[in-house]
């Protein structure tokens, strides 16, 4: 566990000191604010009830969370290989899962921080409309779970290669395919449609969070996707460590 703690601390410090972290945070918050203004407070807003405005906010924020998670995660291991620092981790008494989990948790904390930076928007809805704090908490839980799943996909992608470009392509490809499962599920027949909708990264599993409804099924799904890809990343790192 010592390795995990030390790697987590290093990564967090790296985010706080790199301009990339701040640029990403600023971009996400700016786009989120603009989207909130145009989508939720736009000309059609008056016709909507507060719950709908909140659902639209979580929907648009989920898209930005996915992109930010990918951007953040694809450098995690590929960059170590590019800079030649992977050899330090490889020859240190630190386990592969500690490397993967330490980096993942640091990225998750950073993404959570950026996501919580949008909190003023739903609070405006609370002040001016009728939504409960619980609805907001559920929505944010969904965003963080979705972010964790996409981060895990990105960590897996970055464990495969030393090129951040290739890692981005692989990570974005897996995420896109898992997003497409949802629209695909609506045009194919059962049982395939049920399988695809159960595996879809967005749509069925996120819509509950969007509406303020907490289903253990959805929580379990995101945790399972996160665990699966982190496990894959650990196995890849294990195999590549001695390559």
């Amino acid at each position: 566990m010592n390795g995990l703690r030390v790697i987590f601390q290093r990564e967090i410090n790296a985010y706080l000191r790199s301009s990339v972290g701040y640029i990403l945070a600023a971009t996400v918050l700016m786009l989120d604010g603009l989207l909130f203004y145009t989508q939720a407070l736009g000309p059609e807003a008056e016709a909507r009830v507060s719950g709908q405005v909140l659902a639209i906010f979580f929907y648009t924020t989920s898209g930005l969370t996915v992109i930010a998670s990918l951007v953040l995660s694809v450098r995690l291991i590929a960059e170590e290989r590019q800079l030649g620092t992977q050899v330090l981790l490889n020859t240190s008494p630190v386990r592969d899962w500690e490397i993967v989990l330490g980096k993942f948790l640091a990225a998750l904390v950073f993404i959570t921080g950026i996501t919580l930076g949008t909190l003023y928007m739903p609070l405006m809805i609370v002040v001016n409309g009728k939504v409960s704090i619980a609805q907001i908490l559920v929505g944010y839980s969904g965003l963080i779970l979705l972010g964790a799943a996409v981060l895990a996909i990105g960590v897996f992608a970055t464990s495969l290669t030393r090129s951040q470009l290739v890692a981005t392509a692989v990570g974005a490809g897996i995420t896109a395919v898992m997003f497409l499962f949802w629209p695909l599920s609506t045009v194919v027949d059962p049982p395939m449609s049920r399988v695809l909708s159960a595996l879809a990264l967005h749509g069925r599993h996120f819509s509950g969070f969007q509406q303020g409804l907490l289903h253990t099924r959805d929580v379990f799904y995101y945790l399972a996707v996160t665990y699966f890809f982190l496990l894959l990343a650990t196995k890849v790192l294990e195999a590549k460590r001695w390559e």
Binding site: L83, G84, T85
Partner: peptide, 13 residues
Amino acid sequence: GYLPETPPLYRDM
């Protein structure tokens, strides 16, 4: 303890 040909340094530290 291992020093490879290129020292494994984190440039941001």
